[in-house]
């Protein structure tokens, strides 16, 4: 039994119903959890001496607009002792994209969560410093949401040079 299998078994035993599904894809395991259970799961995975997932490797989100549940928060934990990755997933609906922060367990989640807040508009309960991190403070919208336009501008070629040149806002001295 590998460490990841053990971890999954332990999660299932401790959290019961809150473990919604376990997927294995290309040899990588990801556990989908009830959003409420993420903090407990992280705490367990980190503190269990055998599992020892002591490093938060990545934290991000995916937007499935327009389907529901809209957001998926992705956690990738790593165990230095066992040299294994495990993924946790939590799905959030569009109405209340909110989840508890795991800052108290992995302090480096702070910036990652700020980034997810900035880019997806998912809020983190009890986060110590929830400000935008990457976009300007007064930016409107959350760029990585799927309903946010890419902001493509028409490319200027020789055939449409003059036309675009007219409306290009050149700077003044």
């Amino acid at each position: 039994m590998t460490v990841v299998e053990k971890a999954v078994a332990k999660l299932q035993r401790a959290l019961g119903e809150s473990v919604l599904s376990v997927e294995e894809f290309r040899g990588q395991t990801s556990v989908t959890l009830d959003p409420e259970a993420v903090v407990n799961a992280c705490q367990m995975l980190r503190d269990d001496a055998e599992l020892d997932f002591n490093f938060l490797a990545a934290l991000t989100a995916v937007d499935y607009w327009p389907s529901e549940p809209r957001f998926k928060i992705v956690y990738q934990l790593y165990s230095l002792a066992n040299k294994e990755f495990i993924g946790l997933r939590a799905q959030l609906s569009n109405e209340s994209p909110e989840i508890s922060t795991i800052e108290s367990i992995y302090p480096n989640a702070n910036w990652h969560e700020r980034e997810v807040f900035d880019m997806f508009g998912v809020t983190f309960k009890d986060h110590s410093d929830q400000r935008r991190i990457i976009m300007p403070y007064d930016w409107e919208g959350h760029p990585l949401r799927k309903d946010y336009p890419l902001g493509y501008e028409e490319v200027q070629f020789t055939f449409n040079f003059d036309e675009i040149d007219k409306r290009k806002p050149y700077a003044k001295e």
Binding site: G151, V155, A171, E173
Partner: peptide
């Protein structure tokens, strides 16, 4: 000069929009 390969919301398409 023109935004290069980044044709998106974050990059200014050419600094000539900001300074001559």
């Amino acid at each position: 000069s023109c935004g290069g390969i980044f044709n998106n919301y974050a990059v200014v398409p050419g600094v000539d929009e900001i300074v001559p």
